[in-house]
Design a protein around this nucleic acid. Structure first.
Lengths: 336, 336
DNA sequence: CTGAAAGCGCTAACAC
DNA sequence: GTGTTAGCGCTTTCAG
């Protein structure tokens, strides 16, 4: 690999002059600048960013950690983050925790040793606190995405989980449903708790009793157990509608219902949080509270970069809450 | 940030001893090892991989470049690549070219300056040759994914585009269709050419005339023009079936047909290459040639790592061709 | 406008 | 077993 010294020698200047040409710093005569540039071309020179990082103490690498790389919500978010990073001259190291704290921890170790300038962090859940404390200890700036972590002050970009859930459940209530089940993510995830709150609130406001039997906390990752719904379906007064706390849960529910020969929305209505990407384009079927995923990425990146570049007061923490959009499609219908 | 010198001082040893403890190299007494480890814990030490890379001349970072981060084929592939990388102690820098040569070039520049150890490269098309030559010039090992590039010898992991296309079209022919359209990706992508070949071959074998009017080269990225199919539909003898060269094209086609009020498969059958991820789980509708996307990632990563670690002869190039699976679902039906 | 020296954090090679 | 020296490729500081 050619170094600035190779360039320097061939151009008959010092390494320092080459460095100045590369970085456009200091005063350089047009002649030497041209010459140095020519030699750089000839030798196919590419700066070594490791060496640069070592002395500059910054890498211009940012990291994005998501919890499920196959979920359209996160991939769309990732695209937003990437576009925004690139625009600002940063590289993006992408990681995927699979909703798994151990993987998340591995990833944070990696982040630390790579000395990235900052992290866009979608936590697996409340226990991500350990990993985030690690980042704080090492003074790596981060912005939380999608999920909040109790006890932790930080910049963050969140959805309106409670309000979105409320509207989704309201919609079901308006259709005449009174037995509405909630299939939720794990209760150590902030969004799951808020979506439950929204669900409960909507029911209470409508004077519908909240029945614990109808509330099933599972996991945001795709569920493949076709039997998961059995406890609900075997109830003496089974649900006529289901609110799935995210898109993958909804898919799992649909599969389970299909296996039982139960048709949607004829026999049971279903609505969920998060749109389904390509699935909804192909077949706009599911009624959803669609979150502005791309914006999550862009805004999160914006907050992060401002933080890194010191354009903001490090004491104050900003919390952006992005509204979701209720898209009523065919998976929900009036109770007969 | 604490360095090995901080550790060394506090543990009353030399930096070298600390380095040896970290890397488990050389002979160290159990006592000093324990002590050094203790101090490392106390000081929250994390090795600086930049400094390490600088002297070792390797980064343990690999790069994966895909052409569409929202396409389930590539995200599933990415997951395979990531799992496999992590298992082998490598980090993964993920990039997304959006099928755009300019973005691809930016990404390669970034790769070069980061001095990654190797690249898993899904080329945007034939003109990716420039970027790949760059990598060769700088002796960065790479493995091609999904698409081949003419004039370029390399290890690669490909699908069986021609055979898969042939079987898909065969299936349509068996259903009685004779007017079968091909909506393809750009002709400077190897898979598009091969899928066309498979299509043509299948027709010829069945004694069906190949009609240029039925062949429409578009783009593998999602098409949003609802008018794209007009030239086909206005034909005096319009197609009764469509073969879409990838999943996103199929989605575009379905949307366009829906806009025209044409029902699938009643009025027109459609089949495509690549499964649709969550969409097919939700609603197993589209007849597809499903590629083993996860395996693309795993095997590509395997080839790459073997290459990097010198376990293979650098002269010989390996070309893995992975078969696809024909999944007949509801988007295709017998011609009435 | 240009250069020399020192050092970022780490490890290979060689002492002892 | 452990330490010393030098150097990876670059930029900052200080001279000139």
């Amino acid at each position: 690999m050619t170094t600035i010294y190779d360039i320097a020698k061939k151009a008959n200047v010092s390494a320092m002059t080459v460095s100045r040409v590369i970085n456009n710093t200091g005063r350089i005569s047009e002649a030497t600048r041209k010459n140095v540039k020519k030699v750089m071309e000839e030798l196919n020179y590419v700066p070594n960013s490791m060496a640069r990082s070592l002395v500059l103490q910054k890498t211009k690498i940012l990291s994005l950690l998501i919890t499920d790389i196959t979920n359209p919500f996160y991939t769309t978010l990732a695209r937003g983050a990437e576009d925004s990073a690139k625009q600002n001259g940063y590289k993006l190291l992408l990681g995927n925790s699979d909703e798994d704290y151990a993987k998340e921890k591995d990833y944070v170790d990696m982040i630390l040793s790579t000395r990235v300038d900052g992290v866009l962090f979608a936590p697996a859940g409340d226990h991500s606190l350990d990993q985030l404390r690690q980042l704080q200890t090492h003074q790596i700036p981060f912005v939380l995405l999608d999920r909040e972590v109790p006890e932790l002050a930080s910049d963050m970009v969140l959805g309106d989980s409670k309000e979105g859930a409320r509207r989704l459940v309201d919609h079901l209530i308006e259709l005449g449903h009174r037995r509405i089940a909630l299939i939720n993510g794990s209760m150590d995830v902030s969004t799951a708790r808020l979506r439950e709150q929204g669900y409960v609130e909507a029911l209470k406001l409508a004077g519908i009793p909240v029945d614990e039997e109808l509330m099933l906390p599972l996991s945001y990752r795709s569920v493949d157990d076709l039997q998961v719904l059995d406890p609900l379906l075997q109830l003496s007064d089974p649900p006529t509608a289901i609110f799935a706390a995210n898109n993958f849960i909804a898919v799992g529910v649909i599969k389970a219902l299909r296996a039982k020969g139960i048709s949607v929305p004829e026999e049971i209505s279903i609505a969920c949080f998060d749109d389904l990407g390509i699935a909804s384009e192909l077949h706009p079927f599911m009624t959803v509270a669609a979150q502005p995923a791309y914006q999550f990425g862009v805004l999160g990146m914006q907050l992060l970069i401002e933080k890194i570049e010191g354009k903001t007061d490090p004491q104050t923490h900003r919390k952006l809450i992005l509204p979701s959009e209720l898209l009523i499609r065919q998976s929900t219908s009036a109770l007969k």
